[in-house]
Design a binder for these strands. Structure first.
Lengths: 197, 197
DNA sequence: GTCTATAATTCGATAGAC
DNA sequence: GTCTATCGAATTATAGAC
């Protein structure tokens, strides 16, 4: 959950004087974006949460879109599914996503913003294509149907996050981690590895 | 998809002179709320779509929230599940929801707004409790687990709508109605009627 | 680096003429 | 019923003093 993952190719990021301040801004931004969505999460409110002047946010990130991009550029890398037994991919996938969702507010912010903001939706599509799609290609029996299978898994996983973390349906929020895994893992397993229905 | 379903108990609605105008406003509002969410869907833009003066919207619906309430007060009544064979509830449920989603933009508007707006989320919870929960109580083997089972179904159905109609993941949007039914019906069937996992 | 002041928009809502 | 004009508030973003 670093503010920017250093890419090996580009020159090393120059150490800044106020990394603590910048990290505080990003944390506040994630919380506000996750709680209020893109439009209602104002720079003023984020700055107030971070106990800093609003103009500093602009100085650091240039614009509201730049701030959002920085706040949601998290590392969502998938576990290595080549080493997972084929009959356990559903369970591993559920566990991985629960870890991500319950960690920070990054995914909640992404989901909430992806629904109101065009750039956010594009980001979600990119994450789907880069993260979930390869997993489906890896484990499903018919590679040409991998996109459909991955889309079904995305629907189930994002739907759970939607009802649990965003809409906060009481019965969905009340589910334990074990219950979620027990119910959803077989579903994902079927979407990924079952013969076409 | 009438603008207001006449309730038998209350006195009959007085026929208004400009019902066509009002219907046009509501149609435009649904489209805008569905496309842009609550904050970005401005009264000015809705009025422009409906080819009417913005002040008329205020005059008719009092406020932006009143307009949203009127635009999303659709009849989402469930089919009678007491007459559906228990082994077909999953299939019937999927078909019913696909009908609703592909009909007008009501549900898309509700979903999009439910994610950014507090009142919208409350509306979604109410619809869940009044529509899906009774179905689960009707068909599931352990009534005390009905809320959890209904929540799982809501997650799967709303997740499909999210990826297909809102985020527009290409593979999700490309699924045919038959494919969706074939994949999702067994999932819902299991969530509703299977023994606890 | 930090802050004040303010520009430039945009929005919901209102008042009132016709 | 319909429209013009406008208020008051909130926002992003900028300019510039210290």
């Amino acid at each position: 959950m670093t503010e920017r993952a250093p890419t090996p190719a580009e020159p090393e990021a120059p150490p800044r004087r106020s990394d603590a301040t910048r990290a505080g801004i990003l944390a506040a931004a994630r919380e506000r974006f996750a709680a209020d969505g893109y439009e209602r999460a104002t720079i003023r409110a984020i700055a107030k949460d971070a106990e800093i002047d609003p103009s500093m946010v602009m100085r650091y990130y240039g614009s509201k879109e730049g701030l959002f991009a920085a706040a949601t550029s998290a590392d969502l890398r998938m576990p290595d599914f080549t080493r997972v037994p084929r009959e356990e991919v559903g369970q591993v996938l559920v566990g991985h996503f629960l870890d991500l969702w319950e960690d920070a507010g990054v995914l909640t912010a992404l989901l909430r913003v992806g629904i109101t903001n065009q750039a956010g939706a594009e980001r979600m599509r990119k994450i789907f294509a880069e993260q979930l799609l390869p997993v489906a290609r890896e484990v499903c029996p018919d590679p040409d149907a991998a996109p459909a299978r991955a889309a079904l898994c995305a629907a189930q996983l994002l739907g759970l996050a939607l009802t649990r973390y965003v809409l906060r349906f009481p019965p969905s929020a009340a589910l334990t981690r074990e219950e979620i895994t027990a119910w959803l893992a077989p579903t994902l397993q079927r979407y990924l590895t079952a013969e076409r229905p």
